[in-house]
């Protein structure tokens, strides 16, 4: 099975929400700032619940925050 990679637009979405800080986002979704940093650097893929909470904070659908790519997929 091809390996997949989850990427996200959290950094961009924060920027468009009046430069919301990582700390503010972390407090709104109930995690530590370190977890937000890890997600922005694609070092951690969140649980489904946390992903929905983040999308809810930005007021956008889930697929606008997270996207899934197969690593060996042809462009």
């Amino acid at each position: 099975m091809a390996k997949g990679k989850i990427s996200n637009n959290i950094r961009k979405l924060r920027f468009f929400r009046d430069e919301m800080t990582q700390q503010q986002l972390a407090e709104k979704v109930g995690v530590t700032r370190q977890t937000i940093i890890a997600m922005e650097q694609d070092k951690y893929s969140p649980s489904l619940e946390l992903a929905f909470r983040i999308a809810h904070v930005f007021g956008v659908p889930l697929e606008e925050v997270f996207s899934y790519h197969l690593e060996d997929a042809q462009p």
Binding site: V31, T32, Q34, S47, L50
Partner: peptide
């Protein structure tokens, strides 16, 4: 000090 343990921890 962020002494909470979230899902990643």
């Amino acid at each position: 000090i962020e002494d909470i343990q979230d899902e990643r921890d």
